[in-house]
Write a protein that binds this DNA or RNA. Sequence first.
DNA 1: TACCAACTTGGTAGTCACTACCATGGTGGT
DNA 2: ACCACCATGGTAGTGACTACCAAGTTGGTA
Lengths: 226, 226
Amino acid sequence: MSDRHSTLRTQRRVQTQRAIQAHAVRLFTERGYDATTVTDVAEAAGVSPMTVYRHFPTKEDLVLVDQNGRLVAERIVASAGTRPLVRRIGRALADSAAALTGDGGDDPTAGRGFLLARLRLMISTPALRARHLDNHYALQQAIVDALGDEAADPEAAFRAKVAAGACLAALHTALVRWAEEDGRTELPGVITKALAAAFGDDMADPSGDAGTPDTGRGPSGDTGRR
Amino acid sequence: MSDRHSTLRTQRRVQTQRAIQAHAVRLFTERGYDATTVTDVAEAAGVSPMTVYRHFPTKEDLVLVDQNGRLVAERIVASAGTRPLVRRIGRALADSAAALTGDGGDDPTAGRGFLLARLRLMISTPALRARHLDNHYALQQAIVDALGDEAADPEAAFRAKVAAGACLAALHTALVRWAEEDGRTELPGVITKALAAAFGDDMADPSGDAGTPDTGRGPSGDTGRR
DNA sequence: TACCAACTTGGTAGTCACTACCATGGTGGT
DNA sequence: ACCACCATGGTAGTGACTACCAAGTTGGTA
């Protein structure tokens, strides 16, 4: 029904949503997450606290808003079937990361700089860090679900879940490192190094471009943001 | 200074602490975590809400209270130096898990049953799950710190962090599986299986007893609980 | 025994995240 | 011009959590 009802309404909706999030991350960075109230964010964005809660169910969601899960899952499904799991999953993660570090155009809630600011908050603030890790846990289950018939019996599903969890842990450590380096290095490269450290150096795929990306642009021109 | 001041005071303190936690986990299991207020827990334990907050800084800590981090770190340091990191860390995790699944004697907040109840809550309740994962993240850093001079330069520290994170992710998946099986299987065995699924079957150490433990008792008689 | 210090507990009031419930005004289609 | 929809705003309330302070108890000491 009413597919994208009218662009004007949803456009405004997305616009205020982005404005709220941009002001939120800015204020959180300036004053600290705990020292900033939702009312502060609302005032900065020129809306009422109610509107903030309408767009972001919790204060933490003002920073998190990870919806690249489907992106990763689709990449894994797309990758052909017989290679080891950790390799397929790791490759999908590195490729998706490349797509996220491109510039976001006129969107203030996209691009490398904003991702860095969000990551710094996620790392330094316990509540955000915890929920970010829980998002990774949800992504872990999404990956297993995406494998579908490949992880049919419980034993295979368990192994897939372990592989996905271990890969995501490596990803998280790589993200932390990347943020500590202020994003100066290329994120996909850091991820690949982390995967190699966890599962052996044979993870560095000689037939791919994930290890030494050209400009940081993802394999697809789309940024993956809605 | 005043080392264990007098046993009577600390004994009472530990006693009320255990009582509060036991009632908390019971109520959370019966009524649900979100549907149970801290005041409910306080009333059930026969104390004031203030006292609950004195002993447990947050409502989540009523379920979490993980203090086996040092246990794991010490085991890793104790293990000799040249074997691959994931193997040393994994072994330490499996061994520590064995110590946790023993019976807790008269302590209602120890033993397999209570651990299972806590785990079920941690898995099903988003807030608890998130904070549990964050505890694992803290343990990850503790492991790296424990390695000390073995992870001196940043690159080695990064690899160690990745290894620890991946091992802990495997541990978490194993814990979930163990809880789903209602603790019928032996926890160290599940952990070993998870590590093998993540890092290859050569993780199953033929020279140890971690894969097929005798009775579930840990290698040391002490339960590790204070 | 009398006294003091430390510790544990309890109460009150307040902040803040978050959630109903309802009112209003602008948007888009008919 | 009418109406359905939707985004926004207000009010009141719950619950976690945090000061700030009061009271009783315990342990050691003069």
